[in-house]
Design a protein around this nucleic acid. Structure first.
Lengths: 235, 235
DNA sequence: CTCAGGTTGTGATTTACCTCACACCACTGC
DNA sequence: GCAGTGGTGTGAGGTAAATCACAACCTGAG
């Protein structure tokens, strides 16, 4: 049976998840723990049982760009398969305490060779990840910096949004710096843009870095994002 | 048997290529012919027999961004697999006259289900495409516009480079506008940056838009690109 | 309660790149 | 020959965002 959600576990035949313990170990990690480093040999994959993993890339002038934040049910660290020499293409850090299945890449590859349905599911999942990443990078490249911020707010409302009497509440504790790192912008610029959005009543800034989207339609119109499918337009 | 080059055809078990004519048609296209449009339903894939296909994305203010140019042996138009509703994520246009195999997506999917080795090869190829795209987008995002230009020149020298007594000749006829569209920059900015590079003797501009890279090391150092594997650092 | 360290908000200045504008050149077709 | 077209090279001015700088604020630890 195959699930129909968008996480790895939901996309994949349950054979795989059920046989996890035969070839992988489950380990607990504390916030801040580094699971793998950009450029390191990529011999292990990480399936999130609980908690969150942040993928980051460091720029050469010392700044950090956050590529993605993954939660339970997601597979992280797949830069490629069936190659001798593979390296991670980003750094993976634990955000919230949680448990991770550590899977040797070779074991996953063995399963892919043995199990046709798993292989098909994996292809579908890779395609989905692909489309998401492409769509995100394009938003960041095509619409300038304001567009990048708007796009990030829209994606966050899709991924972390909770209903709220006045709109959609992004259920995360975000500092201006966190947001800036998602987009490749300075903290000050994010601050000014958010202030503007608040002034024109598009968003509201609640205590503890919680953002309330009051006028999602405005954000979408501003970046001509009418038709983006919700399973792609995600963080 | 599996090839070891980096094009789709070289990465994939030859069973697939040999059986192409049983489920796909080969068609000739002239330069400028549009094979598929961004946003259209993606029911067909395109395997390049000869010629080149350019993938582009239009910005909402009417500008065009060139994502990639593919040549013989490459598979184009794969935005995902095994999903009911899939749309192309860019527009594909013929650059040079050539012949294209038009493959129904369902037929490819049938082959993937039937043939385990093909499935494995396809996974490896998707991973490679993934890593290339990621690395390109990151160069464009992380190093500012000059970094984006330098990165594009390095990639072009890897993909289209021919040995030359004074360095590496990029064997393409490129206008300033073409280059600008690869990077998301204006024609004028590209022109000024290339002039600067010529003044400091890093490159030379030959007739008919041919660029000669005289000091590749300078470009690489400028964007801290020491370790990029040549199979990833491609256009 | 208080102090330290992180966060926010905002001004002033600088920089990178875009836009507009136009001169000049090479090539093509009539 | 000469007009038309598309490319190149460069200047002037505008704008978005980075950078620098600092005051005001929250918040948690002791």
């Amino acid at each position: 049976m195959t699930g129909n959600g968008t996480t790895f576990v939901q996309q994949i035949s349950s054979d795989f998840v059920n046989s996890l313990e035969t070839f992988s170990v489950r380990k607990k990690f504390v916030p801040g723990a580094v699971l793998f480093l950009d450029g390191e040999r990529a011999d292990q994959l990480f399936l999130i049982s609980s908690g969150q993993i942040k993928l980051t890339k460091n720029t050469n002038d010392g700044k950090e760009l956050t590529l993605q934040v993954f939660g339970a049910g997601e597979l992280v660290g797949v830069s490629g398969l069936f190659e001798q020499e593979l390296t991670y293409t980003s750094t993976g850090t634990m955000l919230m305490e949680g448990e991770i299945w550590i899977i040797p890449r070779q074991e996953l590859e063995k399963m892919l060779i043995k199990n046709g349905q798993f292989c098909v599911d994996f292809l579908r999942w890779m395609g989905l990840m692909n489309r998401r990443m492409q769509s995100k990078f394009r938003d960041l490249l095509l619409n300038g910096k304001i567009g990048a911020l708007y796009s990030t707010l829209i994606r966050m409302s899709n991924t972390y949004g909770k209903p709220h009497p006045d709109g959609i509440l992004i259920d995360l504790s975000l500092t201006n710096r966190d947001l800036a790192q998602f987009i490749g912008l300075t903290r000050e610029s994010v601050n000014r843009m958010l202030s503007d959005l608040k002034k024109q009543d598009t968003i509201d800034l609640l205590p503890q870095g919680h953002i309330l989207i009051k006028d999602l339609a405005f954000l979408k119109e501003a970046i001509y994002c009418d038709d983006c499918p919700p399973d792609i337009c995600q963080m």
